[in-house]
Design a binder for these strands. Structure first.
Lengths: 322, 322
DNA sequence: GGTTGACCTGAAATCGATGCCATATCTTAA
DNA sequence: TTAAGATATGGCATCGATTTCAGGTCAACC
């Protein structure tokens, strides 16, 4: 309740002087400065954030939009929040739950200056819709997209996926089953390309084993293990879109009495915590650092400064499933 | 940039009338109302959130404070954000990373009205410190504490833990090793009590196997598996503080060639996603619903209304490790 | 015909902090 | 002695929306 006018009154100065004393900007005599500071301390004064924000026209707050906050998104969130806090920003969450209307609310939040910028872990509306809000503030996407106004902090999954394929090849596997993610994603396209190049390089038949495209869930992984048994045990290895699928695959295989990697090998993607628990060979995806890059990208646009992005690489994590 | 005065000017009315037209409160002639609405639409007007907030003195924003956002915290976060959004609130994250200074920043945020209320997943400072900020807005804790000003949405872990113990007993295990969490937590105290009562009930020796108190990590679980081998294989079952420990224990045991549950049984706690992957018997902890309750508690304090809390129960999830 | 109350409108105050501008004093240099 | 510059201070407008208040019209009712 104590505002700056009250502090000023009690210190016997004008609000302007009190403001200067408190902020340390402009001329104030040492004597009055001390008096104001003392009164402020005594009355436990803190400036009202909303008033400062209204005046400054900025919020130092960034909205993070995601369908949910589990698995790799929670890693991203953690990395992003850390980077933001280190630079005096706060992060507000918008959870869409795969609902376009909720996504729209986040965009409207940008428009009404609830937040200075938005970072999309993933979006559901069309890119044009998202981009049309870019005039209200910076928008950055994690999901890989190509658009002038909506930069993305993607890492080309080509390299990462190739790491896994090369590793499987080196281990002697030749009939690789690709478990891609959703087909419309650019990430998926990159992986398909990687596999094509891989087959060319080693002169392999791309059709030696079938491929799948589905949202990468544990349940799908489990299904794949059963499919392998029932459909003639054709693939000798699986390269998967993420660790969830790989984990489901490995777990169900073990339940069915199959042996990994003797019956078939599995290479995951992301290197989430549970990959270690299952001894899953996987590709480490530096989500944390990527989130920091996403923040740097946003900050450089808000503050109009150049900020370096950390170059990131995928890394093969060899464990027991290959 | 278009503000309400501009809309008013363009519609040929006063700002007051424009405000009334837009908010739908107070008297406005149908004709002017339509004119204002049309101009607003045409100029893509949205009210500036900060100005509204400054005027209303409230933010409809709640701060969520946690050391990190992984594992069960991400479940809590998701549940909390969902509940908040459904009621027109937004959630701002404060990540402490186990640093008291960061925690202080969150508390100061409450004081300067950056947020209307705070939810602590866990806190590091002393309870008196936390409570001293309660005068600036509602504070709710997930971690169980007993304090007039800082209510918590705890669930008595006594019941949950007992579920696990009873289950182990029914399966014939008699030398149970308790892997508690941090000893100072009330949750831990509840579990110790549960175990004492359990031993009394079945006339068991509480010292039949040793107990541990440590931060429940996967690494600690792995260590326990090795300890079991090296120290005489005394316990025939482990009841653990959370799924991380249990998972580490099971995974390392399997790596060491031990058989679970033949060599020893393991019962986890929380029922996180990966518990299913490892076929871990565990106690389901309804984190999601609890987060919703936490929100209801905060909301009832902010809006000064009575809101019912959903009664929640633990549930045994039998899988393959017992 | 006068009173009551519903309806309508705009001026101005308000929320709390900030910063420009005018004014004033004092020091230093030409 | 005067001009220029540094130092200090308060008044007032400003950010953008809301809300109170006062003033007004008009119809209905006794």
């Amino acid at each position: 309740m104590t505002n700056i006018q009250e502090i000023a009154r009690r210190a016997g100065v004008s609000p302007s002087t009190a403001s200067r004393a408190l902020s340390g900007k402009g001329y104030v005599s040492e004597e009055k400065k001390l008096r104001v500071l003392e009164v402020a301390r005594q009355f436990d004064y803190v400036p009202n954030a909303n008033a400062v924000l209204l005046k400054s026209g900025t919020t130092r707050r960034i909205g993070l939009v995601a369908p949910s906050f589990e698995e790799s998104v929670s890693l991203f969130t953690g990395g992003f929040v850390r980077a933001a806090q280190e630079n005096g920003y706060t992060v507000t969450l918008f959870m869409t739950g795969f609902d376009t209307a909720k996504e729209r609310e986040a965009l409207e939040g940008l428009r009404r200056k609830q937040v200075d910028a938005l970072v999309f872990v993933m979006f559901l509306s069309g890119l044009p819709t998202i981009a049309s809000y870019a005039k209200y503030g910076p928008i950055v996407s994690w999901q890989r997209v190509v658009h002038e106004e909506v930069p993305s902090v993607f890492m080309d999954q080509y390299d990462g996926y190739m790491l896994g394929l090369e590793h499987l090849h080196a281990r002697g596997y030749r009939r690789i089953c690709n478990v891609y993610g959703v087909g419309t994603r650019l990430n998926t396209q990159s992986r398909i390309e990687a596999f094509a190049d891989f087959c060319r390089k080693y002169d392999l038949d791309p059709q030696a084993a079938p491929s799948f495209m589905e949202r990468g869930t544990t349940a799908h992984g489990e299904e794949l293990a059963r499919w392998w048994l029932e459909s003639g045990r054709i693939p000798d290895a699986f390269a998967t879109t993420n660790d969830q699928v790989a984990a489901g695959l490995v777990a169900e295989a073990r339940r069915l009495g199959l042996r990994v990697p003797e019956d078939f090998a599995v290479c995951g993607f992301d290197n989430l915590d549970f990959a270690h628990l299952l001894d899953l060979t996987t590709i480490h995806y530096p989500v944390d650092e990527q989130a920091a890059n996403a923040f740097a990208m946003i900050r450089s646009r808000i503050e109009d400064i150049e900020l370096p992005l950390r170059p990131l690489n995928f890394r093969l994590v060899e464990r027991a499933t290959t």
